[in-house]
Simulated assay, not measured.
Amino acid sequence: MKKIIPLLILLIIVFISSGQTPEQQSLVGTLEKWLPNKPFESFLSHFHIPYWGILVSIEERGYYPFVEFLIRKGTHFCYFGMIALAVYAALPRFKYRTLSAAILTMLFAIADEFHQSLTSGRTATSQDVMLDTAGAITGLLIWKLIKTIKQRKFAKK
């Protein structure tokens, strides 16, 4: 039971976040205070990210909303990597544990997008599910790499 508690906490946080409107989650005001001189604007102006049928860029959204977009998508990626690791830890040891953790996390991402679609001003996108799943797979691969490196160091001693 102890192994499932971190997963439940992470899923509750996702559920609460998905139930918030864009206005409730906006970081623009905070970014304007923290980054008054628009650092990296010239660097970031080179990026045009295809997302939901448009190219998201500084020109399309403005500096602060674009930075917020990058933070949000980076958070999605990392957070679902953490969820995948929590799923992995909660599962019993068996041959397809890593694959099962990735699939379950993808299902959580789909459920999260569905829940988000029920919130005013929010939409569900398959691109977010793919981003979340990529974060899950990356988190699991990093975990496997760390375990392999540790096992090799231990075997050499």
Rank of each mutant, 00 (worst) to 15 (best):
F114N: 13
L44C: 04
S45Q: 04
E60N: 05
I54N: 13
K144Q: 10
L8Y: 11
F15Y: 13
A102V: 00
H115C: 02
F80L: 09
I4Q: 00
D112Q: 01
K33W: 09
P36L: 02
Q151M: 14
H76M: 02
S120L: 15
T75Q: 02
T125F: 11
Y51M: 00
A134I: 13
Y79G: 11
W52F: 13
W143H: 10
W34D: 05
F47K: 00
E41P: 00
A102H: 03
Y51E: 00
Y64T: 12
S117D: 01
F40D: 02
I4P: 12
S100T: 06
S100G: 01
I16P: 07
T148D: 07
I4V: 15
C78S: 08
D128Y: 10
V14K: 05
L91Y: 11
Q24C: 15
S100R: 03
F114Y: 07
N37F: 07
H115M: 11
G62L: 01
A101Q: 00
Y63F: 15
E32G: 00
Y96A: 08
L10H: 08
R97D: 06
G81R: 01
S120W: 10
K73V: 10
F69I: 03
L11T: 07
Q116T: 01
P65Q: 13
P39H: 03
V67K: 06
G139W: 00
S126F: 15
S117H: 08
G29R: 03
R93M: 06
K2T: 12
L140A: 01
V14I: 15
A124K: 03
I142S: 09
Y79N: 07
Q25T: 10
L70C: 08
L8N: 03
L140V: 07
S18T: 12
H76C: 05
G135Y: 03
A109G: 03
M106H: 02
Q24E: 14
T105S: 10
R122A: 12
L35N: 05
W52N: 15
V129N: 09
Q151C: 12
A111K: 04
I9P: 14
H48P: 15
F69L: 14
P65I: 05
A155W: 11
I71G: 07
A84M: 14
L85F: 05
I54A: 15
Y63K: 08
S126A: 12
Q116P: 05
L27N: 10
A155I: 14
T98H: 08
P36R: 14
I110A: 06
F114T: 04
P92G: 12
I13F: 15
G135N: 02
T105M: 00
L10C: 09
D112T: 01
F80N: 02
R122K: 09
K156Q: 13
I4G: 04
I71R: 03
E59T: 04
K150C: 05
S45V: 06
I54R: 14
V14S: 14
K144A: 02
H115S: 04
H76T: 05
I137S: 05
D112M: 00
I54P: 01
I103R: 01
K38L: 09
K73W: 06
I137F: 07
T138E: 02
E113P: 02
R61K: 09
F40W: 15
R152M: 15
L55I: 06
V67W: 02
A90L: 04
S57P: 00
H46R: 14
I5A: 12
